[in-house]
């Protein structure tokens, strides 16, 4: 999806570093940002950037974005939170799964503007200083991935799956985790990880 936002990626991350190291990759964005006057967007111009505040992992993030920006693109392109992955970008693969409130959703089909005022939790918001979230630890313990691309989405989905009460049996886990595709087919180990983490998560 084209993204005309004038927001700049914030914080240091590998993508920004690599883009900078590649030479001129950041120039068009800078030029475009300079060409727009952010103080006076035309009220009826659908291309004009809009201001939005997203509440992500306990922090308010103020962004100036194109109205077309999804939560996924806002996270990845404007906040430097690249843990949530873009797989299909059409709500089919689950790699972009985040929690909005206590619900798992696909962030690629959620407009950032429509998520304003709601608590968004991403994979980056799970671990405490020196301790992985029980579901993260369970994925490590059970070798529940190969390439790891689907893993952030699997973990976010799995946490919600447990809290919804849908991790009571292997059949339930398979049914309620079906929205997260793993092309390495690590499914048996993912089921094992969810089973391992469920009691600890439900204990609180």
């Amino acid at each position: 999806m084209p993204d005309n936002s004038s927001s700049r990626p914030s914080g240091f991350d590998r993508r920004a570093f690599m883009a900078g190291a590649a030479g001129s990759a950041l120039v068009p964005m800078t030029a475009r940002a300079a060409a727009q006057d952010p103080r006076a967007p035309a009220a009826q111009d659908p291309s004009a950037p809009v201001d939005v505040t997203l509440h992500v992992n306990g922090k308010d993030r103020r962004l100036r974005i194109d109205a077309r920006t999804t939560v996924l693109d806002a996270l990845r392109e404007h906040m430097g939170l690249t843990g949530s992955k873009k797989g299909c970008d059409h709500g089919q693969c689950g790699a972009c799964t985040v929690l909005i409130g206590d619900r798992r959703v696909v962030s690629c089909l959620t407009l950032a503007l429509a998520a304003e005022g709601q608590e968004i939790t991403t994979i980056e918001g799970l671990a405490t200083d020196d301790r992985l979230h029980p579901m993260q630890q369970a994925f490590v313990d059970n070798d529940a991935f190969q390439c790891g691309y689907c893993t952030p989405g699997q973990i976010m989905s799995a946490i919600a799956c447990v809290k919804e009460g849908h991790a009571g049996s292997e059949a339930d886990i398979r049914e309620y985790m079906s929205g997260n595709i793993c092309r390495c087919a690590a499914y048996p180990n993912i089921v094992a990880a969810v089973k391992q983490a469920a009691p600890e998560i439900l204990k609180g």
């Binding site: 709500g91 689950g94 798992r104 696909v106 849908h166 079906s178 929205g179 997260n180």
Partner: peptide, 9 residues
């Protein structure tokens, strides 16, 4: 229908 994520939305 669909997946848990889509049914939530």
């Amino acid at each position: 229908a669909a997946s848990a994520q889509l049914r939530n939305m």
